[in-house]
Simulated scan of single mutants.
Amino acid sequence: MDTRPLVSCIIIFLDAERFLREAIDSILAQTYDTWELLLVDDGSSDGSTAIAREVASKHPDRIRYLEHPDHVNRGMSASRNLGARASRGDYLAFLDADDVWVPEKLTEQVPLLEAHPRAAMLYGRSLIWYSWTENPDVSADHVYDLGVEPDRLIEPPRLVFLMLENRVQTPTTCNALIRRQVYEEVGGFQEAFRGMFEDQAFFIKLCLSHPVYVADACWAWYRQHEESCCAVAERSGVSRALRLPLLDWADGYFASEGIRDPWLRLALLRELVPYRYPWIAQLRKGPRHWIRGARKRMRVAFNRLTHPRSPEEPPTRGAE
Rank of each mutant, 00 (worst) to 15 (best):
E36Y: 08
L92F: 01
D46V: 14
A267N: 12
P314T: 13
D2E: 10
V160E: 01
L264P: 15
T316D: 12
L242C: 04
D33T: 14
G258E: 01
Q224I: 13
R85Q: 14
V168I: 11
A86W: 01
E67R: 15
A217F: 06
R62T: 03
R276V: 12
P311K: 08
P157E: 03
Q30A: 10
R118Q: 14
R295N: 02
Q282N: 07
K58H: 11
W279E: 12
A50D: 14
Y65A: 05
I10H: 05
A176Y: 01
A86F: 11
Y65L: 14
L164P: 02
E54N: 15
P311S: 04
R118N: 04
E320N: 10
G293W: 00
L82E: 05
S45H: 12
V168N: 05
K285Y: 03
Y144T: 10
R240L: 12
Y123F: 14
L39F: 10
A140Q: 15
A220M: 05
P103H: 06
G237T: 15
L14G: 02
R18F: 00
S45L: 14
L112F: 06
D15P: 07
W221I: 00
A220S: 12
L305C: 11
E114C: 06
V212I: 11
L38K: 11
P136H: 08
D216W: 11
C230S: 15
W132S: 06
S8C: 08
D41G: 10
P69C: 09
G47S: 10
F197L: 05
P171C: 01
W35N: 07
D42Y: 07
W101H: 04
L268G: 04
K205G: 02
L20N: 00
S131A: 12
T172S: 04
M163S: 13
N135P: 01
R4L: 14
T3A: 10
A78H: 07
C229H: 15
P274K: 08
F189H: 10
V232A: 12
T170I: 13
W263V: 09
R304N: 02
R158A: 04
G75A: 05
L113H: 07
E271P: 12
Y32I: 03
S126R: 15
S239L: 12
Q190M: 13
G258D: 00
A233S: 14
R85E: 13
C9M: 09
A217Y: 10
C229R: 05
V273S: 10
M121P: 11
P103T: 08
G286S: 11
L127T: 07
I259R: 11
R194T: 08
Q282Y: 01
G187E: 00
L146W: 10
A255G: 03
D151R: 07
M298K: 02
P287T: 06
L28M: 13
G147I: 07
L164Y: 02
M121N: 03
R309S: 11
D61L: 04
I204N: 01
